[in-house]
Lab assay of single mutants.
Amino acid sequence: EEWMVEKALMVRTGLGARQIESYRQGAWIEGVHFKRVSPSGESTLRGTTWYNYPEINKFIR
């Protein structure tokens, strides 16, 4: 699984929702560690946020 939603990321990493938000707003790079995608497939600020687990795992190492 490369891309996953927040709940799956929480299960895989043990991070809480606030921790994920903090990383997203600070250290993680949009387009690398996470992306927002609307149902139409376009990038957007209001779409579902998807997280790239392999890239996040590399960051944590």
Rank of each mutant, 00 (worst) to 15 (best):
E1P: 09
E1H: 08
E1W: 09
E2H: 09
E2P: 06
E2Q: 09
E2V: 13
W3K: 00
W3H: 01
W3Q: 00
M4E: 03
M4D: 02
M4H: 02
V5S: 15
V5F: 07
E6S: 06
E6N: 03
K7F: 10
K7H: 13
K7T: 14
A8V: 12
A8H: 11
A8C: 12
L9Q: 01
M10C: 06
V11M: 14
V11N: 12
V11D: 14
R12A: 14
T13D: 01
G14C: 06
G14R: 05
G14A: 04
G14K: 05
L15Q: 01
L15D: 01
L15C: 04
G16C: 13
G16K: 13
A17H: 13
A17C: 08
A17I: 12
R18P: 09
R18M: 11
R18Q: 14
R18F: 09
R18S: 13
R18T: 11
I20E: 01
E21K: 11
E21L: 09
S22G: 09
S22H: 14
S22M: 14
Y23R: 02
Y23I: 02
R24V: 15
R24T: 12
R24M: 15
R24Y: 04
R24L: 14
Q25E: 14
Q25C: 08
Q25S: 09
G26P: 01
G26A: 08
G26E: 11
A27M: 08
A27L: 09
W28E: 00
I29M: 07
I29P: 00
I29E: 07
I29L: 07
I29T: 10
E30M: 05
E30T: 03
E30K: 04
G31I: 03
G31R: 03
V32F: 06
V32T: 06
V32K: 07
H33R: 01
H33W: 03
F34T: 02
F34A: 01
F34K: 00
K35N: 04
K35A: 06
R36K: 12
R36V: 15
R36M: 14
V37W: 07
S38V: 14
S38Q: 12
S38P: 13
S38L: 12
S38I: 12
S38Y: 15
P39R: 04
P39Q: 11
P39K: 06
P39V: 13
S40Q: 11
S40V: 11
S40M: 12
S40H: 12
G41W: 07
G41N: 10
E42I: 07
E42L: 08
E42H: 10
E42W: 05
S43A: 10
S43N: 12
S43L: 10
S43C: 08
S43R: 03
T44N: 12
T44S: 14
L45M: 11
L45I: 11
L45D: 15
R46F: 14
R46Y: 14
R46L: 14
R46C: 11
R46M: 14
G47M: 12
T49L: 15
T49A: 05
T49F: 15
W50L: 15
W50A: 04
W50E: 05
W50C: 09
W50H: 06
Y51F: 06
Y51E: 00
Y51C: 00
N52T: 02
N52A: 03
N52Q: 02
N52W: 03
Y53E: 04
Y53Q: 03
Y53V: 06
P54R: 08
P54T: 14
P54E: 12
E55W: 03
E55M: 08
I56Y: 01
N57R: 13
K58Y: 07
K58R: 09
F59C: 04
I60R: 03
I60H: 03
I60G: 02
R61P: 04
R61K: 14
R61M: 15
R61E: 14
